[in-house]
């Protein structure tokens, strides 16, 4: 083989290797891009997983809360369960549960917790439509303090206890547990759902107590009638 043909052969081989190398580089680039996409998808899946875990957690909390709230018709017991839920599930340290008196249009605290950390919440009362709490009840809309100082009249959060459009009371939160720095986005949703369940449970318990009282009165009246007729 002459030197010239050897050089041509070498050049041909060189060109082929060059093409092959370029193809490899392109393939490498494609794979890098694919890897990037997979990594992004992985991050999306991971974020979605965390989100689903959080939703799952909230659903579990809501299930347990509604199960417990509707497990009794005793008014005091229902109120105690609402207190437990606010402390353990919502993470509220100081809060007050106010119920609306339909005759006087006044909201009065029927139970509270953490009054040592926020004095005055045990005797809290306000008229419908007055102040933050009264407005929450009259408008049936939740209130969350975005800035400013918390005071008896301006709680951290106030959520109406409503059955459809009828407001029966308000839950006012004044202080969160030390480990809970602020409400998260899902807390707002959970808190409103819990308030709705609490409202029906409180309302049912009140109705039951009223019917029990009426039944006792009727029974006493019947007993009296029976005694007088004999």
């Amino acid at each position: 083989m002459s030197d010239e043909s050897r050089a041509e052969k070498f050049l041909e081989l060189f060109n082929k290797s060059k093409e092959f190398t370029e193809e490899l580089l392109r393939e490498n680039e494609r794979l890098r891009a694919q890897l990037g996409e997979i990594e992004r998808a992985n991050q999306d899946y991971s974020a979605r997983y965390t989100e689903i875990e959080e939703q799952n957690n909230n659903l579990a909390s809501l299930y347990v809360a509604s199960y417990q709230l509707h497990s009794t018709l005793d008014f005091r017991e229902v109120i105690h369960i609402v207190q437990e839920i606010l402390l353990n599930l919502v993470g509220a340290k100081s809060f007050s549960i106010l119920l609306l008196d339909e005759n006087t249009k006044e909201l009065r605290a029927v139970a509270c917790d953490g009054e040592d950390a926020f004095p005055g919440i045990e005797t809290l009362s306000t008229r419908l439509g007055e102040g933050v709490i009264g407005t929450v009840a009259s408008r049936a809309e939740s209130f969350y303090l975005n800035d400013g100082t918390v005071s008896l009249e301006r709680p951290l959060a106030a959520v109406p206890l409503k059955i459809k459009d009828q407001v029966i009371g308000v839950i006012a939160i004044y202080k969160l547990l030390v480990q809970k720095h602020a409400f998260t986005a899902v807390d707002y949703e959970l808190f409103s759902l819990l308030a709705a369940h609490a409202a029906t449970a409180i309302f049912s318990a009140k109705l039951y107590a009223q019917s029990e009282r009426k039944l006792n009165t009727i029974q006493s009246f019947l007993d009296l009638l029976t005694t007088t007729s004999t």
Binding site: A60, S61, Y63, V64, Y67, E84, I85, N88
Partner: peptide, 11 residues
């Protein structure tokens, strides 16, 4: 708290 017992059991 029965609520917490049930929530932990659930988990």
């Amino acid at each position: 708290s029965p609520t917490m017992r049930q929530l932990i059991s659930f988990s």
